[in-house]
Design a protein around this nucleic acid. Structure first.
Length: 406
RNA sequence: GGGUAGGUACCGAAGCGGUUAAACGGGGCAGACUGUAAAUCUGCUGGGCUCAGCCCUACGGAGGUUCGAAUCCUUCCCUGCCCA
C-alpha cells in the first residue's frame, strides 16, 4: 500500500531544510506501513492574506508529495488564529480581523491551494472549531504549559523585546493556539517554512504536555521575492501570485536577479535535482545564458499553473513588448463617456483609471511616460480626440485602447 | 501608581515659532541604458484649479496662545524604558 521507507524518505527529504527529529519520523513511517495507517500531515495556513504566491507553493508542494505517498493531509485554515495575527517576521502588531473576514479569506485560500493539493487524502479544518470554544480556564491551562523564557526564545520576540518594540500579550498566545491545533488533530508531521520552526516545535512540546505522541516537524525554505533580497510576501510586493496571469508570471520571473535563477528553478519551477544540477553547471560555464535560463524557469512555472500553450504565448508577448518594443497582441479597450469626444489629456488619463490623479498624470506626461498611438505626449494640456479609438501607453507595460461613446 | 522618552508623509527618520507639502534614507513610479520588468544612472513622489501662478488638506486627537504653530500651552489617547 505505502512505498518503502527509503522511497518515502527520498521524497520527503527532497528540498526540505530540516526534519526534527528524523529518527522519530522513520519510526512513524515504519508503524504506518506495519499497521497500514496513514500519517496525519498538518499544514496550517494564515488566511489573513488570501493571495497565495509561489513561495507558499513550496510548502504546499511538499504537502502534496505526502498525499501522493498515501498520507493524509490536514489543512488547517487558521480562521481563529488569523484574528490574532502571527507576529512572525513582523516588527509590528497587526490589525486584527473579524472571524467573518477570515472565513471568507479562508475560502479564497482553499480555492488557490487546491491548484496544488489533491482533493483526495485531504481534510480541511477551521481552527475556530475548537479554539473558539475554549474558555478562560482552558486558556490558562494551556498557557501554564509553557514559560515566558521559552516563549522569548523565539527570535522575533526577543528582537522586539530587546529593541523596545511593543509585544502584546495575545501575540505570545499565538504559538500556543497553533500548537493546540496539533493536539486536536493528532498530527504526526507538521510542515512549515523555516520561519515557522519555533511555532512547530511549540506544537510538539504542547502535544507532549497533553500526553499525545509528539509530531515531527519538517521545514521548507522560504523563497526570496523577485527583488532577490526579502522573502516573498504580498506586503513587500515582490511576489508571483498563483493567480497571476501567465504574462505576469513570465515578466516577474524575468525580473529576478541572476543569482536567484537556480533557487527559482528548483523551488518555484519544481525542477528535479538532475535538471537543477545541469542548469547550475550550464550557468557556471557560460553555456547557458542567464536570460535563457530565466525564460526556461518562467515557462516551467507557467506550465505548473496553466499549460504549455500559455507559457509559449507569454514568452512571445514578452519578446514582443520588452525586446522589440512592440505592442502586445491583446490590449483591453475601455469606453469613456464624456459629453464631448475632445478632452484634455489629463482628464482622459484620470477617468480611464490610468492615473490616480491629475497631478500624477501631469508629472508622468512631463516625464515622458505617456504615449498616444505610439507618439510620446509631452504637453499635459493638449486635448485628445477620442471619437476614434486611440492606443494609450503608460510606462513600459500598461497598454489600453480608449474611445469615447458620445 | 511614580518617573522618563516618544507619537511626523507608504516605511524609517530629521526639523522644535515664519524662507516647511515638511531635510535625508528606503520603497514606489517615470526616463536613459540593458539579455531582462535585473544592476546602474537621472527625475518625480498629497490633492484641485482659469497651471512657470493660485487655492485646499496634512506632522496622534481636541482645544488654546500668536500676525503666523509640526514646532509654545492645556487636555485626552497610544507606545517604549526605569522604579513600585
Amino acid at each position: 500500500m505505502f512505498p518503502s521507507i527509503n522511497e518515502q524518505l527520498d521524497v520527503i527529504r527532497s528540498g526540505a531544510i530540516e526534519i526534527i527529529p528524523e529518527e522519530e519520523l522513520i519510526k512513524k513511517l515504519e508503524k504506518s506501513i506495519k499497521t497500514n495507517k496513514q500519517l496525519i500531515i498538518k499544514l496550517g495556513c494564515d488566511p489573513s492574506k488570501p493571495d497565495l504566491h509561489i513561495g507558499h507553493a513550496v510548502v504546499l508542494g511538499k504537502l502534496r508529495q505526502f498525499q501522493d505517498l498515501g498520507h493524509k493531509a490536514i489543512l488547517i485554515i487558521g480562521d481563529f488564529t488569523a484574528m490574532i495575527g502571527d507576529p512572525s517576521g513582523k516588527n509590528k502588531t497587526r490589525p486584527p480581523l473579524t472571524l467573518d473576514e477570515t472565513r471568507i479569506n479562508g475560502q479564497t485560500y482553499l480555492e488557490q491551494a487546491t491548484k496544488i493539493l489533491r482533493e483526495d487524502n485531504l481534510e480541511v479544518r477551521y481552527n475556530s472549531e475548537w479554539l473558539n470554544k475554549m474558555n478562560f480556564n482552558d486558556v490558562i491551562g494551556l498557557a501554564a504549559k509553557y514559560t515566558v523564557a521559552q516563549m522569548l526564545e523565539r527570535d522575533d520576540f526577543s528582537k522586539r523585546y530587546g529593541s523596545g518594540q511593543p509585544i502584546s500579550l495575545h501575540e505570545l498566545l499565538y504559538p500556543l493556539a497553533q500548537a493546540m491545533d496539533s493536539v486536536v488533530i493528532d498530527s504526526d508531521v507538521e510542515l512549515g517554512g523555516t520561519d515557522q520552526k519555533f511555532n512547530l516545535i511549540v506544537g510538539r512540546e504542547i502535544q507532549k504536555a497533553y500526553n499525545k505522541e509528539p509530531q515531527c516537524i519538517l521545514t521548507m525554505p522560504i523563497l526570496e521575492g523577485t527583488d532577490g533580497v526579502e522573502k516573498m510576501s504580498k506586503s513587500l510586493n515582490n511576489y508571483i501570485a498563483l493567480t497571476d496571469p501567465p504574462k505576469e508570471m513570465f515578466g516577474k520571473t524575468m525580473s529576478i536577479p541572476d543569482d536567484l535563477i537556480v533557487r527559482y528553478f528548483r523551488y518555484a519551477a519544481r525542477a528535479n535535482e538532475k535538471e537543477v544540477i545541469e542548469l547550475e553547471k550550464g550557468l557556471k560555464s557560460g553555456e547557458i545564458h542567464p536570460r535563457n535560463a530565466k525564460v526556461q524557469t518562467a515557462k516551467r512555472i507557467i506550465e505548473l499553473y496553466y499549460n504549455k500553450e500559455e507559457a509559449d504565448k507569454a514568452e512571445e508577448e514578452f519578446q514582443k513588448i520588452f525586446v522589440n518594443k512592440d505592442i502586445p497582441n491583446e490590449i483591453d479597450e475601455k469606453i469613456l463617456s464624456f459629453d464631448e469626444p475632445v478632452q484634455p489629456l489629463m482628464d482622459v488619463l484620470v477617468s480611464s483609471g490610468l492615473m490616480p490623479s491629475k497631478k500624477e498624470a501631469k508629472r508622468k506626461i512631463e516625464e515622458g511616460g505617456v504615449y498616444i498611438d505610439g507618439e510620446r505626449a509631452s504637453d499635459p494640456f493638449i486635448k485628445v480626440d477620442l471619437s476614434t479609438k486611440k492606443l494609450f501607453k503608460v510606462g513600459k507595460k500598461t497598454f489600453l485602447y480608449l474611445k469615447n461613446n458620445a
